[in-house]
Design a protein around this nucleic acid. Structure first.
Lengths: 148, 148
DNA sequence: TGCTTAACGAGACTGAGTCCCGATATTGTC
DNA sequence: GACAATATCGGGACTCAGTCTCGTTAAGCA
């Protein structure tokens, strides 16, 4: 018999959407499924292309609409690395799996990292400046181990 | 008699450009002058508009070309706060005046801040991950004191 | 003064993201 | 199950930041 597994993001996302009063729809489900199966962040274009070649076609308008909704609900992180294309990745509740990104200036690879000390420093800064921090992004640029 | 003042960014930028073998040109000079007189970061569009209504017209291609050159030389910081528009602000040598930004999610105000502890944490992370850090950006989002 | 070539600008073009609006599907109700 | 109300969806036109081309202008050197 299988033992309990960590709940999939799809499950969590669908529960959250239901509790917020959203109806279930094929387009949204397709986008959520695709995002759940990804290693790293996908751009809206990549999502649109992958879904177009799949069995469930989804229009561009729907892709952007769904991404906006999910980001708004905190179910998705919007990652912008400065190339003019927004990328999206699944976000778990309570900031579990919270991380930032390193972008290799040579090969373009995206490497996630996390650091408690960094997070503490950010909270301290916000407090000192009298700012109520809702979210934050940290992007490091440079050479990854492979390209150095 | 006037006593010595801190050198203006324009001066620093022009010296740097000269030493890199750039010729002097009216378009570049106009962009540099405008940027030097700014409190906070300007978008390419704002630069183009302000110069168009001024006495020295500068074409869009020139604005973008000059901005790219200056960023490449480290004379300008490119600031991206996630609204799809890149902004630019004068950067001083040796990372003097190095800072990051807080974006108010309510009024959109851009507030600069700096923090040594944060910088140390970033360097530590890069070292730990085996990454050669060339640059980094930190963006905090939330409510500014006025909007809270 | 002339030559070489960097700097410039008008405007066409690209591509991510937005918007409109008619078509379709989900859910609650009878 | 049938129906109404309305959320969801998608084709495609549109916006707009940023890029590219190419002919013109002008800086700097001999």
């Amino acid at each position: 018999m299988p033992h309990a597994e960590a709940p999939r993001w799809t499950t969590y996302a669908n529960e959250r959407l239901a509790s917020e009063g959203f109806r279930r729809g094929g387009g949204r489900a397709a986008v959520i499924d695709l995002l759940d199966s990804q290693e790293c962040a996908l751009s809206a274009q990549e999502i649109e292309d992958q879904l177009r070649s799949g069995e469930r076609k989804v229009g561009r308008a729907t892709v952007y609409r769904v991404l906006d909704e999910l980001v708004e609900l905190g179910l998705l992180n919007k990652v912008e690395i400065g190339d003019g294309v927004a990328r999206f990745e699944a976000a778990f509740p309570e900031g579990a799996d919270h991380h930032h990104h390193f972008v290799c200036s040579n090969c373009g690879k995206l490497i996630p990292f996390e650091d408690d000390e960094l997070e503490r420093a950010l909270r301290r800064v916000a407090r000192r400046e009298g700012l109520v921090m809702e979210s934050h992004e940290v992007t490091l640029r440079g050479r990854c181990p492979d390209c150095d």
